[in-house]
Design a binder for these strands. Structure first.
Lengths: 122, 122
DNA sequence: GAAGAGATGAGAACTAATTATCATTATAGC
DNA sequence: GCTATAATGATAATTAGTTCTCATCTCTTC
């Protein structure tokens, strides 16, 4: 059976508090403030398990490396800061984007990414 | 000075003919139909040089690995086929997307990616 | 509180993408 | 055509991200 470890609780808390997509490295860094011994392999294992459980979902943004965010959230998009490289949520969405595809193409999803500098970095 | 080699001409021709973003592997594959001896290192070198010259631009889509496309083209977006993994151009753009950013964020660009199955794969 | 089994942590191993090395080839200018 | 040298191609090396290994630890159950 699956155990409820300090590490896994810490990782879940990190995502709930962050409210934005996190890379495994960011999860490690924030998680170590709760469980200092936390290791990177444990982050990868748990993040993968939580994604398999449907509690997290993968976010692929430019710049390489997967990020993860809480699943089961309302449709939204992302902002990627060119300065600090953090990803943020954008809660608005232009409607009818999926109509833009070329003739004959079948669209089943979309991702909109805004680039710029976040409030902190300006 | 910079030389005009068969390989470089072939690589340029591949991009002009493709009309969509290509990975280095795709460039290699298509380029070898023109210059069979073409090697992967040469593709990387030339693609990088052409991007430095401003003739190509980088496209980062989910799925890892950079793609390149002709620069100096009108604003457009991309469609990524989940089946064959090829990227295609989308020539329409929803206006005013950059207004969607959270308060205090400075937007200087955006990318819209549609996912689904291309005409060929359906 | 003991025992069994899943989870952890440190580092090694792996992977895919990209870049460097270097002997050989081919282009540009004479 | 000849020469100097930039470019090529095969392969090795590097890199960043991720996964594996295994001895040890710690939940859970009894």
């Amino acid at each position: 059976m699956q155990r409820d470890t300090r590490q896994r609780r810490a990782i879940r808390r990190v995502f709930v508090n962050a409210g934005r997509p996190l890379t495994p490295d960011e999860v490690l860094e924030h998680g170590q403030r709760i469980v200092p011994s936390l290791g990177l392999a444990t982050v990868y294992r748990n993040v993968k398990a939580l994604a398999d459980d449907g509690w997290l979902s993968q976010v692929e943004l430019p710049g390489g490396g997967l990020r993860y965010e809480l699943a089961e959230r309302p449709h939204h998009h992302h902002f990627l800061c060119r300065s600090c490289d953090l990803a943020f949520d954008v809660h608005k969405c232009p409607d009818e984007v999926e109509e833009l595809a070329p003739e004959g193409f079948e669209v089943d999803g979309h991702e909109l990414i805004l680039f710029g500098r976040c409030a902190e970095c300006r």
